[in-house]
Write a protein that binds this DNA or RNA. Structure first.
Lengths: 147, 147
DNA sequence: CGAGATATTTCAGTAGACTGAACTAAATTG
DNA sequence: CAATTTAGTTCAGTCTACTGAAATATCTCG
């Protein structure tokens, strides 16, 4: 990466992202799994507790605990499904989470503004492709895990 | 970010990084704290178990467990300090960790190669500044944690 | 409507990581 | 060289998240 060690830079970015993620978790009083659950609900939209259990490969009982913690943290809401009142629908509350990330968002927007549109396009492209690679490599690791 | 939602893209990148990180941990049979410990030793170089305990704000007993797991995973080595044989020096084994990340490294290098030197410079610059922002925001969260 | 199936919660038990303190070994100090 | 301090490991106890199963509520279907 043009004179810089891309490998090392990527590692440092990863460490920084993970550290931030952990700080958010500590701040909210939720676990890493809780955050993964939140990301799923936020990304895929409102879903039942049972569906989330399947996505996480956890038991329904575990999801009750996860929803409890996320609800207590104020970033998830439980609503009984009007169509099937046994079900509980879990909804991400982007407002509460957004407030927490507001500082980061502002700083990142300011950073983005320092680049030309063409540069912004290059960065967005790189980020998008990096996400694809990470997903692919995550899959590869998950497949051959020597468990 | 040029037509794309930078906020959302950043969130997806974060999720992908964290997912990869978790997959590595699962693959190696180490915890998130173990990985943080490894990153510290790898980043700051060989250090004693006691120093690592201070950096992690954990008890010496906890560090024994961490070193056990990292050693079993093959990415950390314990060596008695020749100058003070009570001490145990912890050394990151970049080879073993590197093997694990080889696939990712290759894919990222290939990605990098698709950009012009100027674009590579832009990306490296963005990554560097993003790391700074993340560190700063992590600090902010760690400071006002409502524990 | 009644029987069985399904969704979530609750709860007892389990597993893993951390603390605090005792223990061992090695250094320092008087 | 004896007494004290320091480094790391060990170990019992604690805490927390998860599982598996029982309990509760609701839906579906004959």
């Amino acid at each position: 990466m043009s004179g810089m060690d891309g490998q090392h830079l990527g590692m440092r970015l990863s460490t920084a992202v993970v550290a931030f993620h952990e700080a958010v978790g500590t701040h909210l009083g939720v676990t890493a799994v809780d955050q993964r659950a939140y990301a799923i609900v936020a990304g895929e939209g409102r879903m039942s507790a049972g569906d989330l259990a399947k996505r996480l490969a956890l038991t329904p009982g575990a999801v009750t605990g996860i929803a409890d913690r996320l609800e207590r943290a104020g970033i998830l809401t439980r609503t009984p499904d009007p169509a099937d009142r046994r079900r509980v629908l879990l909804t991400a509350n982007p407002g509460a989470y957004g407030d927490l990330l507001a500082g980061l968002g502002a700083a990142m927007s300011a950073l983005t503004a320092t680049y030309t549109p063409a540069e912004q396009q290059t960065i967005a492209d790189w980020v998008t492709r990096t996400i694809d690679i990470l997903r692919e490599q995550t899959q590869r690791l998950t497949d051959n895990h020597p468990r």
